[in-house]
Design a binder for these strands. Structure first.
Lengths: 225, 225
DNA sequence: AATAAAACATGACAGATATCATATTTAAAA
DNA sequence: TTTTAAATATGATATCTGTCATGTTTTATT
C-alpha cells in the first residue's frame, strides 16, 4: 500500500499541511479502497467514521428531495477530500456520495485525524479555507437556482464542468454524465434536460462524440438567457 | 465602551472559545457601531478588514443576480458573527450585508483576530463548526430551491423565520420583512410572493397584525405541496 | 445473436410562475 | 395637511417547465 508522505495527491488538499510525522501516522491507519462506478460510498443520514481522500475518479454528492428526486449538490474529484464536514460537525452525513466512475480512495479514520485538526493550526486553517470556498460556491449555486432559467443553469453547468474537471485530448469533457445527472444538477425534469441539450446541439453550442459532450461555443453558452 | 470579556453576546458565537487574555486584547481594538435600518454594512466585492459581532438587530446577506434581482442567501441575527468567511479566504466579500432593522455591532479588525485563529485551536475549531453548519444549511437551501414550488418555499421560509428568530408577545414573528424581501428569499417575483401570502391569509394559515405576520396554522403550512 | 433493460428523444398538454398593467393602500416628505 | 412616493394588491396574459405518453436508440444480459 502507498505511503501518504509520498503521495502526490495530498498536494491538492488540506493534508499537505500535515507534518511528516503526522502523515506517517495517518499512513499507518488508512485503508485503500476501490469503488466501482455507481456504487454508493456513503448514504444520507449515515454516520461517517472518517474522511476519504480521492486518489482517482469522481463522485457526486446528492440529497434526496421529498418529491423523490435526487438533487446533486456538488461533485468531488481526484485530489479532494470527501466527508470533511462530518469530521467536524459530529452529525450524520447530510448527503449521499455516489461514484460517477471507478474510484480509488483512501479512508482515514476520524479518530486519527481529529487530533491533528485540534493540534495543527496550519491544517485546521487549511480545512477552514476549503470550507469557506465550498460555502461561497454553495451561495452562488443558491442564487443561480433561484434566479436563472433551466437553459441558463444547464449552460453554466456545462461550462463549470468543462472548466473545473478538464477535457479529453479530443476536446470532449472528461466527465461522463447521464441526462438524468444533468437534470439532477440543474434541478429540472430529465426530459427538460434532454430537450435543452438537444437544442444546444441543434444550435451548434455543443456537439457529441459518442456519449461525450464537447463545448463548441462557450461564449454562445454564456450569452444564453 | 463595553468590554468583550464581560459581553454576554459572545456566548452565542465562536468568540466564547477565546481566552480571557485574547478577549481583553480584542476588546482594546474593537469599535462599536450603530447601523440604521436599510443601511449597507458591506457590499458585494468589498474587501473586509475584519468581522462584525452582532450585538443587536438583524441583517440580510444577499447577492445581486444578473437579472437585477437581489437574492437573499442568509440572515444574521444578534449573537452571530458577520463576515467570517472573508476573514479566512482573503477574497473580497461574495455577499452584501444590509441591516433589516437598527443594529448594534462590534467591529473586530482582521489583523487582531487572525492570529487567534492560527494559534487557538479551540477557537478555530469552533469557527470550523460554524462554517460546517452554514454549509449544511446552504446545501438544504439548494435542494429546496431546485425541487420545491414557490408556495412550499415561502411556507418553509415563514416557519424557518418563526422558529429561528422568535416571536413577539402577541405571537407575531419578530422580524419584519417586506414582500419584496420574502420574494428575494424564496427567489420569485415580488407579485408572486404577494399573491401567495394573500392566499395563505385567505386560507387561514397566517394572519397579520399591522405589518407583522403571525403563523396561525404551522402544520397547515407544512402540508403545502 | 437474441432479448431485455436502460437511456435518450420528442410530442401534447396542463400547471406554475413571470411579466405587464393598473388599482389601492400605506408611509414618508414637503 | 397635502403631496409624493413606496408598498401592497389583483387581473390578464405569455412563457417556461413538468408530466404523461410513446417511440427510438443504445447498452447490458442471457
Amino acid at each position: 500500500m502507498g505511503k501518504c508522505e509520498q503521495c502526490i495527491i495530498k498536494q491538492f488538499n488540506s493534508l499537505k499541511s500535515l507534518t511528516k510525522d503526522e502523515l506517517i501516522r495517518i499512513s499507518g491507519c488508512k485503508t485503500s479502497k476501490t469503488i466501482k462506478k455507481g456504487e454508493v460510498i456513503f448514504e444520507e443520514g449515515e454516520t461517517l467514521h472518517g474522511v476519504y481522500c480521492v486518489k482517482d475518479g469522481i463522485c457526486k454528492l446528492s440529497k434526496l428531495s421529498e418529491n423523490g428526486k435526487d438533487q446533486i449538490v456538488k461533485m468531488v474529484v481526484k485530489g479532494q477530500l470527501l466527508g470533511q464536514r462530518s469530521l467536524i460537525s459530529d452529525e450524520s452525513s447530510n448527503l449521499q456520495a455516489t461514484a460517477l466512475n471507478d474510484m480509488e480512495v483512501c479512508f482515514i479514520p476520524k479518530s486519527e485525524i481529529i487530533s491533528d485538526l485540534q493540534k495543527n493550526p496550519k491544517f485546521s486553517f487549511d480545512v477552514l479555507k476549503d470550507m469557506a470556498h465550498d460555502l461561497k460556491e454553495a451561495d452562488d449555486v443558491i442564487v443561480n437556482m433561484a434566479q436563472k432559467s433551466v437553459r441558463q443553469r444547464l449552460a453554466e453547468t456545462l461550462i463549470y464542468i468543462h472548466d473545473s474537471f478538464g477535457v479529453n485530448p479530443d476536446g470532449t469533457m472528461s466527465i461522463l454524465l447521464s441526462r438524468e445527472d444533468y437534470a439532477n444538477i440543474v434541478g429540472t425534469a430529465t426530459e427538460s434536460a434532454i430537450r435543452v441539450l438537444s437544442q444546444f446541439k441543434k444550435d451548434g453550442l455543443i456537439s457529441t462524440i459518442g456519449k461525450y459532450i464537447k463545448l463548441e461555443d462557450i461564449n454562445g453558452l454564456k450569452r444564453i438567457e
